[in-house]
Amino acid sequence: MASSASKDYNFKVVLLGEGCVGKTSIILRYVEDKFNSKHISTLQASFLTKKINFDGKRVQLNVWDTAGQERFHALGPIYYRSSNGAVLVYDITDQDSFEKVKNWVKELKKMLGNEVVLVIVGNKTDLEKDRNVQTQEAEEYATSVGARYFETSAKLNEGIEDVFLDLSAAMINNQNEKDLSDPRNSTLRSSNRLIVDDSDEPPPPPATKCCN
């Protein structure tokens, strides 16, 4: 939740993608700028935070890795509940992984509507010769669902930074719009519009009902 007053943003970003598409490599490359797993100091690569400065605004990205195996697919909604952004990774040499991305996009749209910023990432451009998913196809799909599209190589450190910078910019925009349209909403939980007096001794609020 971001507090607009201090211009500090705290975003939750989920990392979705089939196993072996390079989710972990991407996030480790971004947070630690390392690819070879031997040199990485952190014990775990499933929950990482990165603080960045974007146009003078302090942004903290909390990146949540998710288990990509097929059998955990159903657990997705628990992961991406109340996330501000989602990075959907597929392997450009693997058509299946791209199809998976399409599934997740559908689910995310269903669960979070348009509030969530979607970024589709085609990873492993260093294996261009084995490419199975054409850039044009992926780009067209991304535009059709209102997502951003990037191609990266975690191995060669290509395009990773751009993914997260663009994502941050979009999430800040999203957040600001939300704050403008309903400033109260930014502080109270969206599911509840309870109005509490700000005086020192608020009357015990009566059992409230949701207005929506």
Partner: peptide, 12 residues
């Protein structure tokens, strides 16, 4: 495990 564990390893 090689390197830090990802969610793929952690959840199971």
């Amino acid at each position: 495990h090689n390197g830090p564990a990802s969610a793929d390893d952690f959840l199971p």
